[in-house]
């Protein structure tokens, strides 16, 4: 028999012997059921301990456990923690988003009547002008207009008023021009223009 095969055969025999030992050992352990002696002592001890604390059984059912007992389920707890973390994250993100938008809007807008007085407090002409404007057109109470828009409106209104006054003065200084204009206005039936 070649040496290689002989070694392999010997190894198998050795392993079989060990497996056999292991199986025998297991078989012996299985067969030898541990013997419990003094069962009556255990019975007595258990019954005594139960009788010493009789209330425990009656309090076993409680509403809290019945309603919230499910929180002790492992997967339920981890799922709840995940959801809670997600919700807190979402809440923080939303709050920061809202705050940023409020800040942005605050920079963009102003309440018309209130802001007018504040920004043009040193210019009585502007106060009167806007007061007239709001009385005439903005009767709905508080409105929201851009600060820049109001400035542009006031400037163009004042500019137009100056030009109007200059024009009236030029017309009044020249009677021929005044007469000509009155004729033209009456021809076109324009009564609102008061010279």
């Amino acid at each position: 028999m070649p040496e290689k095969i002989l070694v392999k055969w010997q190894k198998n025999i050795y392993e079989m012997d060990n497996d056999d030992k292991y199986e025998k050992l297991l078989g012996k352990l299985r067969k030898s059921k541990p013997l419990l002696t003094g069962t009556s002592d255990i019975e007595e001890e258990v019954i005594n301990r139960i009788q010493k604390s009789p209330g425990k059984v009656k309090t076993e059912f409680n509403l809290f456990d019945y309603l919230f007992g499910w929180v002790y389920i492992g997967w339920m707890r981890s799922a709840l923690v995940t959801v809670a973390v997600f919700l807190v994250g979402l809440f923080i993100y939303q709050q920061s988003l809202i705050l940023r938008r409020i800040e942005k809007l605050e920079n963009q807008t102003m309440p018309a009547g209130y802001q007018f007085v504040r920004m043009n407090a040193d210019d009585p002409e502007n106060i009167l002008t806007l007061d007239n404007l709001t009385k005439l057109r903005l009767k709905t109470g508080r409105i929201t207009i851009g600060k820049k828009q109001i400035e542009e409106l006031l400037n163009s209104y004042n500019d137009m008023e100056h030009k109007y006054k200059d024009l009236i003065k030029v017309i009044e200084d020249d009677p021929e021009l005044k007469k000509l204009l009155e004729e033209k206005l009456s021809e076109k039936n324009i009564k609102k223009f008061n010279l």
Partner: peptide, 21 residues
């Protein structure tokens, strides 16, 4: 409790076997 004594008598050997091993 009387029946629980019976239950102890029946269950203890099984419980003991596992615990002991």
């Amino acid at each position: 409790l009387q029946n629980f004594r019976k239950l102890i008598g029946i269950s203890s050997p099984f419980a003991f076997s596992v615990a002991f091993r």
